[in-house]
Amino acid sequence: MTRPKDLDPSSNPRALLGCELRHARERVGLSQEALGAPIFVSGSFIGQLEAGTRRMHLEYARHFDEVLGMGGFFARNCKAVAKSKYPDHFAEAAEAEAVATAIRQYATLLIPGLLQTKAYAEEVFRAYHPTATDETIDDLVTARLERAHLLDDPTTPLLWAVIDEAALRREVGGCSVMAEVLHHVVGLMRKRRVIVQVLPFSAGAHAAMDGPLKLMEFEDAPQLSFVEAPDMGKLLDDPATIARHTLMFNLLQAAALSPRESLALIESVAQDYEHGEQHP
């Protein structure tokens, strides 16, 4: 049997590796569930690997090579898939985000990364890494801004963000930085490229008091949820968890201001920052 060629790292190695996995699995007549069972992953996880929405780790690759008779192909090519400009805890989520058809996100204390400006992102990373070199900060900021190119497409992905009022009121980098980032969000809203709702302080207790939340949908793979903590992050695909997180986001939408009311509030706060006014 002719072995597939090793992948070109300059291509989309995750998608190509997934395609090879699907062909190899179907060739030997295994279901997704049967392939995943020995390594304790679900059939839906195998489907996400095949669709390119999840990264193939080395321990999985070795199993696939053995079961599917691939002569080490998957293990060799894990190196191409593993390369990322993002921190380890976020790399897989960023890769999934890049192929998502819809992203629904609740942001607690920060403007979401996809909506940040250069100056705002730099201030955030400076706070996270106070002893980092300028080069390190520049690399982090560049990677974050490159993610935002997802929004260059006029329609896909759908981005629906619920932003806590605290993110508007927390003065990151001073008034000019805050005015710029909020006007940037307003611009995207007015172009109807994103949907943004503000969860006001007056909403009181709400469904996501424990922290931020991100849900991602895909054309040909199950939905994913990404949860994170300082220097930690995890992609989840358990259907019960996805259903619970979807309900949480729906409740946040219901408790938040309408998009029109949110636009008015964000514009008002941006104007206040332009005049150098402080906020409670």
Rank of each mutant, 00 (worst) to 15 (best):
V177R: 05
D152V: 06
R169F: 06
V162K: 05
D139R: 04
I137N: 09
W160R: 07
M189T: 01
V177T: 09
L140R: 14
P157W: 06
L168A: 01
I163E: 00
A148P: 02
V194M: 05
V141C: 11
T136P: 04
M189S: 03
T156P: 14
L158I: 15
L159S: 01
L140C: 15
E165S: 07
V194Y: 02
M189I: 03
T136M: 09
G174P: 01
M178V: 03
V194D: 00
D153V: 10
V185Q: 01
C175W: 06
T155D: 10
A167S: 12
A143W: 13
G174M: 09
A179Q: 10
E146F: 09
G187Y: 04
T136E: 15
L158M: 14
T142A: 15
L150G: 07
R147D: 09
V181D: 01
W160H: 11
L145N: 08
T142K: 13
L159V: 02
R170N: 07
A148I: 05
H184C: 08
I195E: 10
T142I: 11
A179N: 11
V194H: 04
W160D: 01
R190M: 08
W160V: 05
R144Q: 12
P157R: 02
L159Y: 10
V181C: 10
L158P: 00
L182A: 11
V194W: 03
V181H: 03
D139S: 09
T156N: 08
L140V: 04
V185H: 00
D153S: 13
A161Y: 08
R144V: 08
E171V: 14
K191H: 05
R144D: 10
A143E: 07
M189Y: 00
M189D: 00
L151A: 09
